[in-house]
């Protein structure tokens, strides 16, 4: 059986086509084969973009729409996926996907472009406690992106630069707009770019950490979402949370789509 999970993020659309492998006698279902995964930039016309991303994923797996038993959608724009049978919240999908990748993980931190959130999960991958920040982008990837633009660096350079600094410069501005002017002030006071990059990523990590602390840090910590690719942020988050290790999945931006496809498969039984 093949199911699809579509994560309609604010910046990009992630599609996972999942094949359920039934092993006779096995106590649990296995999801061994990801038929396809594709990420496309989002579009203002979200329903058209969802159709396009889904069709491309099907084409790359050599499948047709009728081959897929169920399509579930998650993410901020999940209601725009007209062909999805059900919409799943980002918390439920993220918790499910993270638990599949790291069964021992009990604290899941999801930092995408628009929003960051912390979740506590049980052994079955159900979200038991969650907190997000529904108001501003200061604890999310778009904040880091805006600040890297102010420093005229790519996001990769930005993350790497932060790792070269050992200074702690507190950023007082809570808002992306005000923080940008604070970054400009730091540039004018000849603060090295590496130190500014670290200050920005420390600030994002501290905001994300505040959300995670609302739900409590317990067991193994798993970080999902696009910010996993930012090594500087991962280091800042470790420091802010006071943990030695954070588990980082291979395809971090696909974890919610994966969880969504798994829930779609479970609901077919």
């Amino acid at each position: 059986m093949i199911t699809a999970g579509i994560d309609m993020g604010s910046r990009s659309i992630k599609v996972i086509l999942l094949e359920e492998l039934k092993v006779d006698g096995a106590p649990q279902l296995k999801y061994g084969v990801k038929k396809a995964h594709i990420m496309m930039p989002g579009d203002l016309d979200q329903d058209v973009a969802a159709d396009k991303a889904y069709d491309e994923a099907l084409a790359s797996a050599g499948l047709k729409r009728e081959d897929v038993k169920a399509v579930f959608a998650t993410g901020a724009g999940r209601k725009q996926v007209s062909f999805a049978a059900e919409g799943i919240t980002e918390m439920t999908a993220g918790a499910k996907g993270a638990n599949f990748m790291y069964p021992q993980g009990r604290t899941v931190v999801d930092v995408g472009a628009e929003e960051g959130r912390g979740m506590k999960t049980d052994a079955e991958g159900r979200a038991v406690d969650f907190a997000g920040n529904e108001k501003c982008a200061a604890g999310a990837g778009s904040f880091a992106e805006a600040m890297s633009r102010a420093l005229q660096m790519s996001l990769k350079e930005f993350g790497d630069a932060s790792l070269k600094s050992d200074k702690t410069i507190p950023m007082n501005a809570q808002c992306t707009v005000f923080a940008e002017s604070e970054v400009v002030s730091l540039i004018h006071s000849a603060t090295p770019k590496n130190d500014i990059a670290k200050a920005v990523l420390d600030a994002v990590a501290s905001r994300v950490c505040a959300m995670v602390r609302r739900v409590g840090i317990e067991g193994e910590v798993v970080l999902i979402g696009g910010m996993v690719h930012n090594a500087g942020f991962v280091q800042s988050l470790k420091t802010a949370m006071g943990v030695d290790q954070i588990s980082l999945p291979d395809m971090p931006e696909y974890i919610s789509a994966l969880g969504c496809a798994m829930i779609a498969a479970e609901r077919q039984h």
């Binding site: 979200a127 038991v128 969650f130 920040n133 529904e134 108001k135 604890g139 808002c175």
Partner: peptide, 16 residues
Amino acid sequence: MIANYGYKDGSGEYYI
């Protein structure tokens, strides 16, 4: 499940 709805901003932490 404990669902926290709200936000944290410069003026404080506002969750229900």
